[in-house]
């Protein structure tokens, strides 16, 4: 997947002036939002949507703006890191998914707005899942926050990115600013099945890790596994299948739940990589896959 991402970033050049501009804008945005006590997720969501206009530079600019801002505040920390991870993963994946972002020269697809909208929304959902899970994972592993609270903080950002982006695309079309749709390199974007599979993996990662983390944290109220076992026996009884499975599951979560959350990222990463590789094999097969959900025939 990373190879793919790299390729997509080659296909979508990052323009230095854009990054510089975006850094300034990012700094201002973060500073203004901070002073106005706008939640960090909203700031992130806006920066993601900004990628529609300036391409992945938005993420880089936003991230550097954020770092500069936090440096000024003397508050660079895990919080800076997690938001930066969220932005970079989000926009990186979105650029890969969505042709509207692929040009890197402020291009909005109006030639085929439904497709652009569709690809943007699908891209936002899948990229948002990965970005939120990755960022929450970093917050957890860095000992900053629980996975579930970190994820809950950033999830609204996905919604913001989606809504603002959709609004931008629709508005651009209304204004009739017909801009040619950049053509992304064939095969750099995932096919429909791959997208679906990535959605499933991303959702399973995020939801699974939230649930596991939450349950492990709650079960942690039992100081020892003995007490948990007694509690579960009182709740489910003993001997039945439900009791056996239930207590085994709960004890496993109690003992290894937090470890599972830590291992969730490598697992999701490897799984995604495998899926993308499989997808590429399909794309490169003699029969072209014309069922791209998120670019459709634009691709060829």
């Amino acid at each position: 997947m990373w190879e793919k991402l790299q390729r997509s970033s080659v296909a979508t050049p990052v323009v230095p002036e854009h990054v510089a501009l975006a850094s300034g804008a990012g700094f201002l945005l973060v500073a203004v939002a901070t002073s106005a006590r706008i939640p960090v997720a909203v700031v992130g969501g806006l920066l993601v949507a900004a990628a529609l206009f300036v391409g992945p530079s938005a993420a880089l600019g936003g991230t550097s703006g954020l770092v500069i801002h936090d440096l000024f505040r003397g508050a660079v920390g895990v919080g800076t890191l997690t938001l930066a991870v969220w932005l970079c993963v989000f926009v990186g994946l979105l650029a890969w998914f969505s042709p509207a972002l692929a040009g890197g020269r402020a291009r909005l697809s109006v030639r085929s707005p439904p497709r652009a909208l569709r690809s943007y929304v699908v891209g936002t959902v899948v990229a948002g899942l990965y970005a939120t899970a990755a960022s929450a994972w970093v917050a957890t592993v860095a000992g900053h926050e629980r996975f579930y609270t970190a994820a809950a903080d950033l999830l609204p950002g996905v919604l913001v990115a989606g809504l603002v982006g959709v609004a931008a695309i629709v508005t651009a079309r209304r204004l009739g600013r017909a801009v040619s749709v950049p053509r992304a390199t064939v095969g750099t974007r995932p096919g429909r099945l791959t997208t679906l599979a990535l959605f499933v993996v991303g959702a399973a990662w995020l939801v699974g890790a939230i649930g596991t983390d939450l349950l492990a944290h709650d079960l942690g109220l039992f100081p020892t596994d003995i007490q948990l076992a007694y509690y579960v026996a009182g709740l489910l009884g003993t001997g039945s299948l439900v009791a056996t499975v239930g207590s085994a599951v709960l004890l496993s979560v109690y003992r290894y739940g937090e470890l599972a959350v830590v291992l969730s990222a490598p697992l999701a990463g490897v799984l995604s990589w495998v899926l993308v590789s499989l997808g590429r094999t399909r794309v490169q097969s003699p029969t072209p896959d014309i069922d791209f959900v998120n670019g459709g025939t634009d691709n060829d």
């Binding site: 957890t140 592993v141 000992g143 492990a216 942690g220 100081p223 020892t224 596994d225 003995i226 007490q227 003992r255 290894y256 739940g257 937090e258 470890l259 830590v262």
Partner: peptide, 12 residues
């Protein structure tokens, strides 16, 4: 009570 809850948090 009782037994070591092992070092889940320490590991983390």
């Amino acid at each position: 009570d009782d037994l070591p809850s092992l070092s889940r948090r320490q590991l983390l």
